[in-house]
């Protein structure tokens, strides 16, 4: 018996490449939620979709641009940020959002990450932190909590992990936030705020990866991680960032919030001034 067709169009069709669905993400993965929040933020931004650009690197999260019906660039592993740097400098009116994972942005791409923040380039970075390399099979990375059992840490992770909000704030970013995939309204609002920030705006989104992280680390389904978010998350916008390390053990809080929101000149502002000065005193060839 043919199924009744209830709708032929999804309200987000304008911004999603329906011809690319089904997507590659596993059941219980949080990346689709991040994508939905990004779509909502674009809609509410007042900036036409033609001016939005999404840039990613390599990994599960970095597949997000492939499903977005805007100009979308899926670059190489760890190099989304320098690609965005070049694009932003020559076309500052583009609203560029880099969306990629923890392995991509702060492990292999760590050097680009810190320098882009230091220079205060004017784009948004949404880092989907699922504590692992999902696509390649659950290896450990720079955000994997100590003690986690990983495919390349079968005896447990022995390294310390990044405290990303503290790192990013220490480099002077004008906007720093952390939310989880449970906080869809707060995350959407944060992405929207990020789009209005003049300079580097950073949002860490803690996200479940039941397949490659959760299974061996007490979060076997997406729902388990979401329940953990509900129980452990404490919204604390004024948090002391030295104390927001992620510790997934029972009884430890997961601090979320919009931690930093300040104003400072962006790289574009400085670059524009430099060019004005250079063109005014133009030498040697007039």
């Amino acid at each position: 018996m043919p199924k009744e067709v209830l709708a032929t169009k999804h309200p987000d069709d304008e911004l999603i490449r329906a011809d690319r669905i089904p997507h590659i993400w596993c059941p219980g993965c949080g990346i689709g939620i991040v994508m939905k929040c990004y779509v909502e933020a674009i809609k509410r931004s007042g900036i036409p979709p033609e001016r939005h650009v999404v840039v990613s690197g390599i990994g599960c999260s970095s597949r997000l641009p492939g499903y977005m019906n805007i100009d979308s660039y899926h670059t190489t592993h760890g190099r989304a940020i320098p690609f965005a740097v070049g694009m932003n400098i020559v076309k500052p009116d583009l609203e560029i959002t880099v969306i990629a994972g923890d392995g991509d942005l702060v492990t292999i791409g760590g050097n680009h990450f810190i320098h882009a923040i230091r220079r205060n380039h004017n784009f948004n970075v949404v880092l989907v932190n699922n504590f692992t390399y999902g696509m390649t099979g659950g290896q450990y990375g720079a955000t994997t909590p100590i003690g986690s059992k990983m495919s390349t840490a079968p005896y447990g992770m022995i390294e310390y992990s990044f405290n990303l909000p503290l790192l990013v704030a220490s480099l002077g970013a004008p906007f720093v936030a952390r939310w989880t995939t449970l906080h869809i309204r707060q995350l959407t609002d944060a992405i929207l705020k990020a789009m209005k920030v003049n300079g580097f705006a950073f949002i860490e989104v803690v996200s479940p990866c039941p397949t490659q992280y959760g299974e061996d680390n007490n979060f076997p389904t997406g729902m388990d991680m979401m329940k953990y978010f509900r129980e452990a998350c404490v919204v604390e916008h004024e948090a002391d960032l030295r104390k927001v390390d992620i510790d997934l053990r029972p009884g430890k809080p997961l601090i979320v919030g919009n931690f930093v929101h300040i104003e400072k000149p962006s790289y574009n502002d400085m670059d524009r001034k430099l060019i004005e000065i250079a063109m005014k005193g133009r030498k040697p060839y007039g």
Binding site: T76, P82, V85, G86, H112, M279, Y285
Partner: peptide
Amino acid sequence: PQVGGHFIQMEDEIASIMAIIGASNA
């Protein structure tokens, strides 16, 4: 900058090639 262009010294050569690819795509 004298001809209205942009110069940037990146953090390494990987970033440099990626920045020019990004700029060219704009």
